[in-house]
Amino acid sequence: MADKQTELLQGTLDMLILKSLGLGPLHGLGISRRIEQVTRGTFHVKPGSLFPALHRMEEEGWLSSHWGESENNRRAKYYQLTKTGRRQLESETERWGRISLAIARALEAS
């Protein structure tokens, strides 16, 4: 397991979690692995950060959760996007695009 850990920018964790749930419900470990996978191991989300974020986002109404069965018939809590969650993902993506563009420009400027 790659231990390359890049400090998550404030607010990016939420966006990554929302994004990873875009294709369907996942349990905590699934979200964590999905983020690792799509960022090619750049980000490794520890449970100590993941679970507080999930619970907070659920309180915000972005996610909903239910108990379900994992691939190996284990009980696990699954999270999925709500409507507000989807809207949040869109606005976060849009915001991120603007920020990264701006930063890229700033860095290119001489």
């Binding site: 349990h27 905590g28 470990l29 449970p47 679970f51 994992s70 284990r74 009980r75 696990a76 809590k77």
Partner: peptide, 11 residues
């Protein structure tokens, strides 16, 4: 919460 974290550990 306890169940969830324990399930995570099992996974």
């Amino acid at each position: 919460l306890d169940a969830e974290v324990r399930a995570h550990l099992d996974l």
